[in-house]
Design a protein around this nucleic acid. Structure first.
Lengths: 382, 382
DNA sequence: CTGTTAGCGCTTTCAA
DNA sequence: TTGAAAGCGCTAACAG
């Protein structure tokens, strides 16, 4: 814990600079010198001092990954995929962990403040890159603060990648008008620079296809268990759902109408919300023939509530989820849902974060969301 | 990205040392000076340089968390709980992220080499603490290398906490005899020091209770889907299972006997292993009346295979899991399993890692594993 | 309570 | 191809 570069240099009979060059391998060094240094490193069991090199080099080998909740497989799968591109690969030598990056996973719990706090913390670590996963709150003030932080990060050389989230500019239109920065910003106006790279999910399209599937089966009274209001993911999925309803002229397709409100219950992205929400939906509309949930976890909660009410799935009522998390296929019955390519997205985001993959044209790519028809949906009873 | 302590000091009309003291709040500073400094920090949008302070203070505010697979809720839940104790709490001010620690989550994929690599990386980051979650490979050589790394970490002031893993000394008995260090160690023999704090799960007891439950129901032909061989968790659970069988004089209770081998299939901790394993078990013993899986995920895979074979659960065959992950209760039928207090364990490990909780007596605490009887187990058909 | 003074261990010009 | 030297930005004695 106290052998330094200088010690290695002394033992190898070279200067500290040379040792540094050998270790970083970014500079020509004679073969014999090189092996002498490596031997000394080995004999002394030398381990680089990360903070010291980060200070000197003005960049660390840390990559921040922001997630809402790492216990939720939705984020767990993405985080794992991101990590797989960033961390030590299986084939690396345990004795030569050079140039290895490490992922700092930050649980925001969906809280905008904590999102900002973590970004500041990452800024202070001089993170090499930051990946923000999942949707965020659509509040213009938060979006403004977020944009400011990201700009600072990028100005400091940190790569920023959005994974499963709209680019900020798109989200900021409308309410967050141009002109004066929203309250709180008192720093100099920095150059916006290029927008962060974004990988988005086709939440809207997936939701629309899912509800269309239900409509095609003959359902007309469809309840919707939405996620927390004012979050991008929630809104996109709800919009897609309503677009399908509207296209079919079904009830609840017109946003803002009493009918649409009546058939929509907002809650969290957790099981309890699905359980409670399904009950509420049933109270509002006893003639319900189908329930669409904001995600698979919510759908499972809904299934549990429905079943306890004596309703069979899908005979009495159809239920559909979203995301196609690993457990969806093992639900009872297997859940009809929309597959989000979480793993692919995470892996790609990880590569983008390291600059190992070219940014997509327009700096944004939308990943497909495919309908997975399984056993939990069926035609309504005649 | 370039305003430094000195800039703040200049603006506030004080010395850099004073600014440092204000920011770290670990030293008396006059109220007026304090607010002047804080104002300057604010106006300049100053952000501490983490690497620089880590270098100077010889410790960083990073906490390493090693997991097998963050996409697996077993680890996700623990990681989330650990994080909740380490990272910014909800009530913290976003503008004052001082003294905040951050968790570096390292996915080892269950690979011993990567476990070591990450430990080295964490050593190089001068991590404030390291939490190792879940079981590990029981290979004496790996255990030796692991112990060496952990000793170095502790020697450098890093707190080490094991969460869901046996203390190394206990695991090292038997094969890894005292005396010469296993191959590869060529450093000076350091003082072993105190063993790391460990929080372990009562895998053995939980498994025994689970199988006893099955035996009480009348089952006698019970198949076991074990996890990867040579891992602590796998062995403890299998041992508990066999202990229950042996106590009841049932088939397969005697480790090493052909009967025990025949009724045990080793695989991974994933769904596919459960699926394949269940089929294999059925091939070996068509008269099977129950299947016990190494964990819930494996159990779900087994359920799927069994169902495809036309077997009803629990009427034709009982199935049980382990861990009681969130989805277990929503399986079809609800899974009988053993509840592991993942959240509590993680939270406690997090507090131990920060030194915010006293180590348990003997530096090791075993957390209970309670049997959760649900619908997937029932008496065998007469 | 505050300032001065040395480093912490590494990277990186600039020379040789 | 290698070495010398000057910091990177912060903390921590030690004075005052």
């Amino acid at each position: 814990m106290s052998v330094t570069l200088a010690d290695v240099a002394a033992r190898a009979g070279v200067s500290a600079a040379t040792v540094s060059r050998v270790l970083n391998g970014n500079y020509p060094v004679a073969g014999s010198t090189r092996s002498r240094v490596l031997r000394a490193v080995d004999e002394l069991e030398y381990v680089v001092n990360g903070p010291a090199s980060a200070l000197a080099a003005a960049t660390s080998d840390l990559v921040g990954v922001l997630v809402n909740d790492i216990a939720d497989p939705f984020f767990g799968v993405m985080a794992s995929a991101i990590q797989s591109q960033i961390g030590p690969a299986g084939d690396h030598d345990a004795e030569a962990p050079h140039g290895q990056k490490m992922a700092i996973i930050c649980n925001t719990g969906g809280s905008p403040e904590r999102e900002l706090t973590y970004l500041t913390l990452l800024l202070r670590q001089r993170a090499a890159a930051v990946v923000l996963t999942g949707g965020t709150v659509e509040d213009p003030e938060h979006l403004g603060a977020l944009a400011t932080r990201l700009r600072r990060l990028e100005a400091g050389g940190t790569r920023v990648v959005l994974c499963g989230r709209q680019p900020l500019t798109a989200a900021t239109d409308g309410a967050a008008a141009p002109g004066a920065a929203p309250g709180g910003a008192h720093g100099p106006e920095e150059d916006p620079g290029p927008a962060p790279v974004a990988l988005t999910f086709d939440n809207f399209g997936g939701a629309r296809r899912l509800t269309t599937h239900l409509l095609d089966l003959g359902h007309r009274r469809i309840g919707y268990l939405a996620g927390p209001a004012a979050r991008t993911t929630t809104r996109q999925r709800l919009d897609g759902h309503r677009a399908a309803l509207a296209a079919a002229g079904a009830a609840g397709g017109e946003a803002g109408t009493p009918e649409a409100e009546r058939l929509t219950v907002h809650g969290g992205y957790d099981r309890a919300s699905g359980y409670d929400g399904a009950l509420e939906l049933l109270r509002r509309e006893p003639g319900l023939t189908a329930v669409v949930a904001a995600n698979d976890t919510v759908a499972l909660g809904a299934c549990a509530a429905l079943r306890e009410r004596g309703l069979r799935i899908p005979e009495d009522i159809s239920v559909a989820g979203f995301d196609d998390l690993p457990f969806a296929i093992d639900a009872a019955p297997a859940l009809t849902t929309v597959r989000i390519p979480l793993h692919e997205a995470g892996a790609r985001a990880g590569r983008l974060a390291l600059g190992r993959e070219e940014a997509p044209a327009g700096r944004t790519a939308t990943l497909p969301a495919d309908l997975m028809v399984r056993a939990s949906t069926a035609p309504p009873r005649p």
